[in-house]
C-alpha cells in the first residue's frame, strides 16, 4: 500500500502536466475532426447550388451564321442568359473608330482595362475588324444600351459619330463598345470569347486555338 502510494506521489507533478497536455491534444483532435466533418457535410449543400450539369451544357458555345448579317446590321444572340451583340460594321464606321476626334472623347481607347480577350485588344476590339462581338450590358448598372449606328449632329449628343447609348443613365459607347469620358459607366463593354469556325461562321463561347480567356475574368460585366 505504502509503496504504491509513494510511487504515485513522486511523479505526480510530471504526470499532472502530461495529463493536461494529453487533454489539450485530445480536445484539439476532436475539434479538428468535428471541423473536417462539418466541412464535409457542408460541401454537398454548397456545391448543390452551383450550376448543374444541364445548366453548364446549356451554356456551351453556340454557332452564328454571319452571311445573313448585312453591313451596318446588328444581331443579338442570347448566350448564357446575356445578350451578345454581333455587328457587321461598315467601312465608314471603321474609319470613324480611328478618328482622333472620337478617340479623344473615350475613357479607355486602347482597351487597357481587362474587358476583352487579348485577341480583341486592338483599335477595333475584335478579331476581324468588320465584325464586332460585344456583351450588350452597360457596365454601369446592367441596362441594355441602344444601338444608334447613324451619325447625328444633335442626338444623343452633339456631333454623334454612331455607337451605343444607354437609356437608363445616359452612358455612351462607340461602335467598338469603348466607353466615353464623363459618363456613369466606368468601363468598355466586355467582349466574350469567340472564334471564327469558318469564313462566315462565328462560334461564341470558344477561344481561338491557343488562347485562353474566361468571360468571368473581366473587370466588370
Amino acid at each position: 500500500m505504502d509503496a504504491a502510494s509513494g510511487a504515485a506521489v513522486a511523479p505526480a507533478v510530471g504526470s499532472e502536466q502530461a495529463r493536461t497536455d494529453r487533454r489539450d491534444f485530445l480536445r484539439m483532435v476532436t475539434g479538428a475532426g468535428a471541423a473536417i466533418g462539418a466541412g464535409a457535410i457542408a460541401w454537398p449543400f454548397i456545391d448543390y447550388m452551383n450550376p448543374s450539369e444541364d445548366v453548364i451544357a446549356a451554356g456551351a458555345a453556340i454557332d452564328v451564321d454571319l452571311s445573313k448579317v448585312e453591313p451596318g446590321q446588328q444581331i443579338t444572340i442570347l448566350w448564357r442568359g446575356r445578350p451578345i451583340l454581333v455587328v457587321n460594321r461598315t467601312k465608314a464606321a471603321l474609319e470613324t473608330l480611328q478618328e482622333p476626334g472620337l478617340v479623344g472623347r473615350l475613357a479607355d481607347p486602347a482597351s487597357t482595362v481587362h474587358q476583352q480577350p487579348p485577341y480583341a485588344q486592338n483599335w477595333h476590339r475584335s478579331i476581324k475588324p468588320e465584325f464586332a462581338v460585344l456583351v450588350g450590358i452597360c457596365t454601369h448598372l446592367g441596362c441594355l444600351p441602344k444601338y444608334l449606328p447613324t451619325p447625328d449632329p444633335t442626338t444623343p449628343e452633339a456631333n454623334w459619330p454612331g455607337g451605343y447609348f444607354c437609356p437608363c443613365h445616359g452612358s455612351k459607347y462607340d461602335l467598338a463598345g469603348r466607353v466615353y469620358k464623363s459618363v456613369p459607366a466606368p468601363y468598355n463593354l466586355p467582349v466574350p470569347p469567340y472564334r471564327f469556325s469558318g469564313d462566315q461562321k462565328l462560334r461564341i463561347g470558344e477561344n481561338p486555338p491557343g488562347a485562353t480567356f474566361d468571360l468571368a475574368s473581366v473587370v466588370q460585366m
Binding site: P44, F45, D47, Y48, N50, S52, E53, D54, V55
Partner: peptide
C-alpha cells in the same frame, strides 16, 4: 430544384438525381 407541376415534377426529380451537383446525395 423541384418543380411542383404535373408536367415537370417527375423530370425535375430525375434532373436532381442526374444533373444537379450532389442532388443524388441530398
Amino acid at each position: 430544384n423541384y418543380a411542383p407541376n404535373t408536367a415537370m415534377a417527375f423530370d425535375s426529380v430525375q434532373r436532381i438525381m442526374r444533373d444537379v451537383n450532389y442532388g443524388w446525395l441530398l
